[in-house]
Design a protein around this nucleic acid. Structure first.
Lengths: 202, 202
DNA sequence: GCGGTATGTTTACAGTGTTCACATCAAGCG
DNA sequence: CGCTTGATGTGAACACTGTAAACATACCGC
């Protein structure tokens, strides 16, 4: 009745989920993150996680995948909040949600994009982020019918992603939030205004 | 007669520089990166680096700062290669140089942006990346006189930064290089074309 | 030449990822 | 019902890491 995932309940009752949860707690509290610390918080021995994850990297991947789902939810919610049709506002709101997510859960965000796990090409992490990319593509398709292209969605994701990292890395202050929001908004606006000026060159 | 840096030559002859060099070697060869590994490659004891860096994090910072300088050089060179005046091409070339740098030295690039060293606010790393930011700002000022704004330079750096990370993280294949170049170019183009369409919305 | 200080070494400790032999529990089959 | 069997967790162990402290040494200014 409880869970129905592949790994259900034996001794502990879905460790693996408990481990991922513990990892998120540690990351959010800013405590030192390690396989052992996660195991400790979940109340199991240091070797226990190895029954569910081949690697410390695999645990990281699981946490990252969860983060991607959360991020996707955050973006979807932002979309619901904004009046549809106004492309500038929609794009701004998406970018803002993206950056704010990064600032709200910096450690998870870093885990999501930080380290590449040398593992196989079927890496869940890549797949999860690909899904996110697809969502953005659909939104753009709705905003700019006909003009939507992988190139465009790439570029816009790039802006949000880049801005998020620049904040995380201390290039811009993360406080107060209102300023961050304004920074993202003005960046998107500047970008959208750019096309006009392009003519002048040559 | 040899060097004239703050830390000159005592026993070893400018360790610190040797350590940073060793670190870069290790990172570029993809070997396991650690304080001890760096010390080993420099031929000194594991404790020796502590005479030059308070922390492993400080070593990382030094490596990152070096990376920022290299990146700035790479961008400057790209600027020299491109016919001035054509804004689209200049921006494309800059973005390409940025992304290619990330792909050429992925580990260093990750070190530059990956982990935040909780240290003081006068972090060299932040300062070095700020310099990079300023350079981009000047270029934009030349390209779009009057229209240049922090917002614009933020956005454009964001694009390059985001694209670089998306490649590094496996969302896009890093080979062949020609495809990467094309991907960056088309992203920039799509972005610059965006402003035109904006009118249609309302 | 001498003393002091910058530099490097040795030794040591706690913490990490990982492995392996072992214990235990759930469940299914006889 | 009892036994095997495989999935799950434990304990002890190994090599490695970052870091600290006490010690050694070489350079430099006096």
């Amino acid at each position: 009745m409880t869970a129905s995932t592949s790994t259900r309940a034996y001794h502990h009752g879905d460790l693996r989920a408990a481990l991922v949860a513990a990892a998120n707690e540690i990351l959010e509290e800013g405590d030192a993150y390690s396989l052992r610390a996660v195991a400790r918080r979940a109340g199991v021995s240091p070797a226990a996680p190895y029954r569910h994850f081949a690697d410390r990297g695999r645990l990281d991947t699981a946490v990252a995948v969860g983060g991607f789902e959360d991020l996707r939810r955050a973006l979807a919610e932002a979309l619901r909040r904004v009046p549809t049709g106004n492309s500038t506002e929609v794009l701004s709101e998406l970018g803002i949600a993206y950056v704010l997510f990064a600032l709200r859960r910096p450690a998870v965000f870093r885990l999501m994009f930080g380290e590449e796990y040398g593992g196989e090409s079927d890496d869940d992490r890549v797949q999860a982020s690909q899904q996110l990319h697809d969502v953005l593509g659909e939104v753009l398709d709705g905003l700019f019918p006909g003009a939507s292209s992988p190139a465009l969605s790439r570029a816009l994701w790039g802006v949000a992603h880049g801005l998020a990292f620049l904040h995380l890395d201390g290039n811009y202050p993360s406080e107060p939030v209102a300023e961050v929001v304004e920074r993202v908004r003005s960046s998107v606006a500047a970008l959208l205004a750019l096309g006009h000026r392009q003519e002048g060159s040559r």
